[in-house]
Design a protein around this nucleic acid. Structure first.
Lengths: 251, 251
DNA sequence: CCAACTTTGTGCGATATACGAACAAAAGTC
DNA sequence: GACTTTTGTTCGTATATCGCACAAAGTTGG
């Protein structure tokens, strides 16, 4: 790609949008400038542009994103057949298991939820479409990492912020690589309270007819209700069934 | 705002992202150019920029958005306390009612779902966070429009594509304005199969302590299960209770 | 209440970008 | 296969944007 085929003003603007997160719902110009590393004047122009277009509010001091910004992500969700195809299968899976079921794809070091069918809430984390979790300690993340060539998985681990969310969290890269191998061999990933205390989950890959992974599918259950050891016997057959049904549908 | 405080390259790029939708998941440069009304050269630069940043894929012919684009919308969801605050109340509401419960905000002529707790799926429409529905024929939309000064509601109606989704859909602006008045008086909106055959829903406004509407809350139920006339008796008390509980929490 | 500091707004020269036209390459059409 | 239409790409130039430097406004601390 040539130099002039890149619109840096656009790229800068997108960076500015991503500067907003849970810890910083409102940003002043100077704050946004610090976070993005962009010049204050540049950030100011981007924020005023967002505000002018209705993607952000400005009270003269702070900028905050408006729900209109959801249009951008929604363009993906509605434009991509995958979530739409998967959703009914997920609903059925969730109902039969009596637990929450989700589907996700990998983006960098994180998985992104692209569809979800939830039962009674059991987690402290509020998961919806678009939610992100670190791949290394989530069952669906393990499935994705296991599907990659080892050097790519290592690369992602090296860029991940490996931290122990609970006493059970595996954070040693070698342990994780060994775990990926196990996941690849057995065809599923089991997480026992590594992300959050009291939560177990089991995931399988969703492949298209050429054998390429296109998403991961999981079921989560409270550890108090279903011991980790039971997860496989209870839910793996259901997951496998859904996996098979979807394999036929995905091209 | 001065002319130079607007980054048109950024604005153009956002327009290009919004050009993707359910009917057009993949776009060629010329198609995107037609949809957005921008010059082909300009669209090409925007798309190549998106691709370079990983927000889009390019196979040499078509561009398609990648899940990374969800980061942009997620910035809003995680940065805005509202969905997070509402979600647990919604879960409880949904469970007690045994039906799906949702919350939404108004964006132009449409409502956007910012949180949702679903029970068994009853609708053909697949609703998740970020989904949009026309305001005029949705219960939450009616609540929002009823909360606006009449001239604003009329303005939104005039910009809406008023079409009869079902034989029951109200599409006459004067009927709708009268309906808004009724909604304002009774404090709730009831929709009987105006959006989709077989679906009833009831909504109430969610106000902060200064009496300003910040979201709408609803319960949807299959008409076969709950007749429209029963909706009020069954669900209004629950909605009111949730409304009251949230009023205290929202500042 | 003022001085020091931080943050925000603005003018300007240098640089990057958009536009429209022109051309090349495909893709239809007959 | 020749013709027409559509699409992608390149180029020169007019214009918009960037980042810097400075001014203005707002905060903080004594």
């Amino acid at each position: 790609m040539r130099e002039t085929d890149f619109v840096s003003g656009f790229a800068r603007g997108l960076t500015v949008i991503e500067a907003f997160d849970e810890t910083r719902p409102k940003l002043s110009i100077a704050e946004a400038s610090k976070i993005t590393g962009l010049d204050r004047a540049t950030v100011r122009r981007s924020l005023l542009t967002l505000s002018e277009l209705g993607y952000a509010d400005y009270d003269g001091k702070f900028f905050a994103l408006t729900p209109k910004i959801l249009r951008l992500g929604h363009a993906y969700l509605s434009a991509t057949p995958l979530p739409t195809i998967i959703q009914p299968y997920l609903d059925q899976l969730s109902e039969r298991a009596g637990q929450s079921a989700s589907a996700s794809v990998l983006d960098g070091t994180e998985i992104i939820y692209i569809a979800r069918a939830s039962q009674k809430r059991v987690m402290s984390i509020n998961l919806t479409t678009g939610s992100r979790l670190p791949a290394y300690c989530a069952s669906m993340g393990r499935v994705w990492l296991a599907a990659l060539p080892e050097h790519e998985a290592r690369d992602i681990l090296s860029r991940s912020n490996l931290k122990a969310n609970t006493p059970y969290t595996k954070i040693d890269p070698e342990d994780l690589i060994a775990e990926f191998r196990r996941v690849r061999d057995q065809g599923y990933a089991l997480i026992d309270q590594e992300l959050e205390l009291g939560l177990c989950s089991i995931a399988v890959p969703l492949e298209n007819d050429r054998g390429r992974i296109v998403a991961a599918l999981n079921i989560g259950a409270p550890a108090a209700h279903v011991a980790a050891a039971e997860m496989v016997a209870r839910y793996l057959p259901l997951l496998k069934e859904t996996q098979g049904a979807l394999r036929v549908v995905l091209r």
